[in-house]
Design a protein around this nucleic acid. Sequence first.
DNA 1: TATGAATGAGCTTTCATTCAT
DNA 2: AATGAATGAAAGCTCATTCAT
Lengths: 203, 203, 203, 203
Amino acid sequence: MPKIVNRDKKRSEIAQKAIALLAKKGFQATTIQDIADAAGLGKGTIYHYFKTKEEILLVVSEELFHETERSFGAALLLINEPMEKLSVLIAEALKVTEDLENLFVVYTELWLMNFRCNHYKDFMGVINRLHKDMTNLVARMIDQGKKQGLWSKDTDTDALSCYLVASFDGVIAHYMMDKENFDLKRVTKEFIRFLLQHEAPKK
Amino acid sequence: MPKIVNRDKKRSEIAQKAIALLAKKGFQATTIQDIADAAGLGKGTIYHYFKTKEEILLVVSEELFHETERSFGAALLLINEPMEKLSVLIAEALKVTEDLENLFVVYTELWLMNFRCNHYKDFMGVINRLHKDMTNLVARMIDQGKKQGLWSKDTDTDALSCYLVASFDGVIAHYMMDKENFDLKRVTKEFIRFLLQHEAPKK
Amino acid sequence: MPKIVNRDKKRSEIAQKAIALLAKKGFQATTIQDIADAAGLGKGTIYHYFKTKEEILLVVSEELFHETERSFGAALLLINEPMEKLSVLIAEALKVTEDLENLFVVYTELWLMNFRCNHYKDFMGVINRLHKDMTNLVARMIDQGKKQGLWSKDTDTDALSCYLVASFDGVIAHYMMDKENFDLKRVTKEFIRFLLQHEAPKK
Amino acid sequence: MPKIVNRDKKRSEIAQKAIALLAKKGFQATTIQDIADAAGLGKGTIYHYFKTKEEILLVVSEELFHETERSFGAALLLINEPMEKLSVLIAEALKVTEDLENLFVVYTELWLMNFRCNHYKDFMGVINRLHKDMTNLVARMIDQGKKQGLWSKDTDTDALSCYLVASFDGVIAHYMMDKENFDLKRVTKEFIRFLLQHEAPKK
DNA sequence: TATGAATGAGCTTTCATTCAT
DNA sequence: AATGAATGAAAGCTCATTCAT
């Protein structure tokens, strides 16, 4: 009998190893050979686990989703905490690590590919789910803040949470575009200050 | 002399026509033949105006810069107006047209390419200039707001303007990622409301 | 000893199951995986029975030979019957079944491969034996006809039997090339009528 | 301006050069590089003239058709001659040249490919046209023979002409399968003798 | 014996770039 | 200046075959 392999696990492993490559070189410029090399496998072996190169990206996008969800898992537990924890969430999330950078680059490329959906399959399912999850998380925080009277009642919760999640992406993107000059700490601080000032004035 | 002008004009024309293609298909998937067809020229002719395919992208990125600057030109005149005009600026800019969408997609790809600078030339110069210009524009508005006492004096002008410009990109990106569900109007409205609430409380 | 018998039996079984595949897809397009699947075995197992893919074809060609011989076995018994039985033989043989179709397609491909003998092993041995057997069968019938005075004495028995066997293949081939329009029954009838008119005129 | 090329002529030229290769190696085993080498062109250049490898075969099949028609052109002029010319036609056609051999091999492969039409495009159009043309030619000869009273009135012209054309293919195939032992001359002679004996007995 | 994971040679196809006209 | 024919490097993908289990 041949070596028994957990196909899904191996798929995930290969995908994991591919992330850094995809981030650094981009989907098109990353060759199957590159991925095989990174995984320590032969070129052909990759095709035992993935039908096409695109399928690798699909699994990568799922990894990206799970990883993001996982890293927000702790924050989800904070939902019962007071609204200020939102700022902690932001601050935590904006501590951009190398892994997160890679994921963010892949995420951006996925978006572009989706925009060109006439050429690529729909990777957007994953991204939309991600956005929805994050937006819900933020929305629940805002609602809680509203309930506690810490936040103006006439806030459009949905719109604001969309805005916050979007601006979050914008900040990471701009930081990554110009790491040397973009002072992530100060911007984060201002972002949070901005947010907290938003509270209903405690008259 | 006139030759050079014509040459540059033609370069610009070709680049202009290439933008939609680059947005729709991406840099790699857009062939020289595509660009030549769009420009109504022969494939070889393109090489009379551009040394390489990448050079076309370089000119495209400059077009992108000029076009963005141009569209903000009117807004720049508003600098002497009261701070609330910032909201007008945002609202105006977030009226995303098809041309702007294309530019935004190319802009995003340029960013990705820059991130992979080991493979591509530096397109970041243009983007950084663009960010600097926009950030300055916003910063001046905030400063003016501060001077007029409409804005809290302890605001970190630089950080906030960076944040605003970044969040601006984030909003466009998220809108484009899910046009059908992302309610740009409501988000814009909330964005502005958010911003205006930021004002120093008029005690 | 019994091992060898089993081995050969299994080889034959696998080859049998491969025939339809080979007919439908062709040798090159039929993968070892296809054959393994059809045989209900693992890919690696096939290599316990065959050294190479080509060897499978070799055994298939032997199966083809045996099957053809077998189907002509009954006819061989008719040799002592009067010459008109030749027409019965033809009529019977031209009742093309699906199995025979598959065999015929494989047979044709074997011929092509043999023609390209610089690339493939010699499958012709089998085919030549087959032709020789059939030609002999037909020749004996003609000779018998001659002896009985039913057939012109100056007939070139060898040449005519070669011709008849060859034309037999041609008819099947043309029928298979255009099943819908090629009226096999009428052609068979005319073939036989043609043959019988060939008899020495009964003066 | 670039070199002006007659695309169709070049396509035809490339196809012509490909015929011998296709005959000798088969479609699958013939690589684009082989064809390019034979045509004295670069591999990429082939793709200026053909979208796919299969398209080359398509043009080859058309060449095959035209060449066959051309070689029967002279015979077509003989239609007004007495029926015995049919035998001349057969004799002429069975003088198998190397070019004809190649064409015949390609023709056989085309047939196989068509039989596997789930995998390959329909090349049969060409072959069916060819058969129809040849069958008509033969049928007209038979009819003329009938009119001149040289041929039995109750002959099924269509079926017989189908049979003759098919047997013609069978003879060439068998000859090519065993050139050394298959005595084409004697078989041709017997084929013709056979045919002529078919005449209505001149009582 | 039976298996399928692993492999890499080899294929088709694409395309930026060159260059003769 | 303008063109498109020519090119070959490079990529994705297939599959016969090997081999550890």
